[in-house]
Design a protein around this nucleic acid. Structure first.
Lengths: 217, 217
DNA sequence: TGTTACCTGTGAAATATTTCACCATTCTAA
DNA sequence: TTAGAATGGTGAAATATTTCACAGGTAACA
């Protein structure tokens, strides 16, 4: 008599989810270039990934290709956007209006890929009220109130490392569920909150392992 | 008679290398806080990683801890810096002097972690000659000449996506071996060149898979 | 000194991920 | 109509990565 797993884990590996946005980016680019169809091998060549991996990844979500032909680019773009819940625009808050917060708020590449920066917060009284890319900088005093009122789910965290954890705690308490952290520090958050990290130094230090420095320095 | 592998692969997994900078960052932080010793379990708790993984990772490079006691923070920091070749400062070039290039060049957190921004390049004639954080913006016409003369090995790529691949080709031809790419596009490079990617949208799209949008938008 | 609570480093086991290899299908062109 | 080349989906096999679990070793303290 076989024992049946009561709650068969059938969830898709996170590592697979993490590749989907990369596929989407490449496919959207192809679409923009006027390309109608592509194949797992062509996509793999562009991304430096094996074709089998791409097919296997996509197979978790359905059958999107056609044997002999490949994938219809526009269709696959549409499907990936649905899977990643990008059929609506996600409103996003930027926390911190330093150089980096300014650069993020000024970047116009978010919207066509599913996001819109709608709020900017800072503590500096001399910054508050200034406008970046049509968005007025708000006081951090209004953080919780605004997050709850607007049900903001995603924030870009561009504050000094020393304040990153305390601001994170405030964001989480107010209901934020996704944080992209630019401060060079690890954040502690509850399980239901997703954190992404962007620390250029971490990435550079990863590279230096493989590079031989020259004698000059 | 045993067949002996002629070229036994004994290299350390890249995924392990990728975690070392994160360990280093946390340890340097502890050191700054005045902490003398730590343990794999404490470090793991902070980073959301199992203690076994940390011990296993470090074991690839030697024995740095002491049973019953744990790790001497300052010592482990020193060892990790050696492993990652951070005992000297790596000079770095920023390509592109837009908002992002400006933010990168203005950031003062590089130096204490092993890097120094020393050059900034842009095509815009009205930008050339301007100074950011003591560094004058140079013309892209001087790119190859400067890279070769100074033997620049690492570059931060902050140019529009449309130019990213062609600039990359120039960097690689001139001798750059590590590129941190901020443009939302995949780069094709030879095997010996290391590329890191930083695209906030890719990270946000990864998160949205796990977050339920609210009804408001 | 004896006892207890902690630690590391590490083989072995358990999982997770990637790759292989092949069938069925599609398209092209002779 | 048929042959040949290309392609997706997918179990099975191969690899890679993580976790387990325990033999020492250390420190603190009664």
């Amino acid at each position: 008599m076989a024992l049946i797993a009561p709650d068969k884990e059938n969830q898709i590996p996170d590592i697979v989810i993490g590749r989907l946005p990369v596929y989407l980016r490449a496919l959207a680019y192809m679409h923009q270039q006027g390309k109608r169809t592509t194949s797992s091998s062509e996509l793999g060549r562009r991304l430096g990934i094996s074709s089998a991996q791409i097919r296997k990844d996509l197979s978790h979500f359905g059958e999107f290709g056609k044997q002999g032909t490949g994938y219809h680019v526009q269709h696959l773009v549409k499907e990936l956007r649905l899977i990643l819940k990008l059929d609506k625009i996600w409103p996003v808050a930027v926390i911190g209006a330093g150089f980096l917060g300014h650069a993020l708020a000024s970047y116009n590449g978010f919207e066509e890929r599913g996001f819109q920066i709608r709020w900017i917060f800072d503590t500096d009284p001399t910054q508050i009220g200034k406008v970046i890319n049509d968005i007025p900088i708000q006081s951090m005093n209004e953080l919780e109130k605004t997050i709850e009122l607007e049900t903001i789910k995603i924030a870009l965290l561009a504050v000094p490392a020393i304040h990153a954890q305390s601001v994170t705690d405030r964001l989480v308490d107010a209901g934020v569920e996704g944080i992209l952290n630019y401060a060079p520090i690890n954040l502690v958050v509850p399980d239901h909150v997703n954190v992404g990290y962007s620390d250029p130094v971490v990435q550079l230090q990863h590279m230096t392992y493989y590079i031989n420095p020259n004698e000059k320095f």
